[in-house]
């Protein structure tokens, strides 16, 4: 009685998640194939796939993906660096927190898209304004995550560091950094998610390449298959980069005694 469900869950759990989208996709494919719908506004999977293949063959796809990846990558790095630095400063020095945090929280309350006109005026229509917008999106979750993590480091663990007379830098390196690492990884993943969100907004404002451009282009030329193709690629890239962060940090977080580990994670 105990063996069967565990074997089922081991192999069937990932498959279970695929059941719904696969059924819907195959169902729609079948509906179009049987002529119940012409599939013009909602293209069947085969047509989306064909569009992707065509884009890939012409070299267009690589160019668009490269442009988007470059923007997300650079915006993410800038946002992470700024968020980590300011978050660490605000978490570590209470004076800096009282000075900085109210302003940053007020800025956070502004929907980031509202910056777009200003960024275009300041930084021009090309790459700089796009990357700035993405960096802003990434900055806030990373800043909040780092500051919150530092503020919630267990006083008892810090006392162990004090007992062994760690200097300031040693306390940061040997106690604070490892203690905030799990929360930091989460904030990186949230930040990356927002980076992907904002790259679309950024590419809506006058781009000539990038996956967001494919979306706009598909809308203006009435090519829904191209829109869905771009969405699918966004999904794949988003999941892939998130997974990269997860994989890269697994060796650093092996020590965690967490609920998720026992359950086999997400």
């Amino acid at each position: 009685m105990s063996r069967a469900p565990s074997r089922l869950s081991r192999y069937a759990r990932p498959l279970l998640g695929l059941a719904l989208p696969l059924t819907l996709a195959l169902g729609w494919e079948l509906a179009v194939w049987l002529g119940w719908s012409n599939g013009r506004l909602v293209p069947p999977p085969s047509r989306v796939f064909a569009t992707i293949v065509e884009l890939a063959r012409s070299g267009e796809l690589t160019r668009h993906i490269a442009a988007t990846l470059y923007r997300v990558g650079l915006g993410f790095v800038l946002g992470v660096v700024a968020g980590t630095l300011l978050g660490a400063i605000a978490g570590y020095w209470s004076l800096a927190r009282r000075l900085l945090d109210p302003t940053i929280q007020a800025l956070r309350a502004i929907p980031s898209i509202a910056w777009v006109p200003l960024f275009i005026l300041w930084l021009g229509i090309f790459e700089t304004s796009k990357i700035a917008l993405i960096a802003v999106g990434v900055f806030f979750p990373v800043y909040l995550g780092v500051m919150g993590a530092i503020l919630s480091v267990d006083r008892k663990i810090v006392e162990v560091g004090r007992i062994f007379r760690l200097s300031g830098p040693a306390m940061i390196r040997r106690i604070l950094l490892p203690a905030v690492l799990p929360a930091y990884v989460v904030s990186l993943r949230v930040g990356l998610g927002l980076g992907w969100m904002f790259v679309v907004a950024a590419e809506f404002m006058g781009a000539s390449e990038g996956l967001g451009y494919l979306l706009i282009d598909g809308q203006q030329l009435g090519k829904p298959a191209q829109i869905v193709a771009a969405i699918v690629i966004f999904a794949i890239l988003g999941k892939l980069t998130d997974w990269l962060i997860e994989i890269a940090t697994v060796p650093l977080l092996r020590w965690q005694d967490a609920f998720g580990r026992e359950r086999g994670g997400a």
């Binding site: 008892k156 663990i157 006392e159 162990v160 004090r162 007992i163 062994f164 007379r165 106690i175 490892p178 203690a179 690492l181 020590w255 965690q256 005694d257």
Partner: peptide, 20 residues
């Protein structure tokens, strides 16, 4: 007046560093 090399302490909880 501050922690000293010649004085050690053991707390009620082990307070081990979980990442080591």
């Amino acid at each position: 007046s501050s922690p000293h090399a010649k004085i050690g302490i053991i707390f009620q909880e082990p307070r081990l560093l979980p990442w080591l």
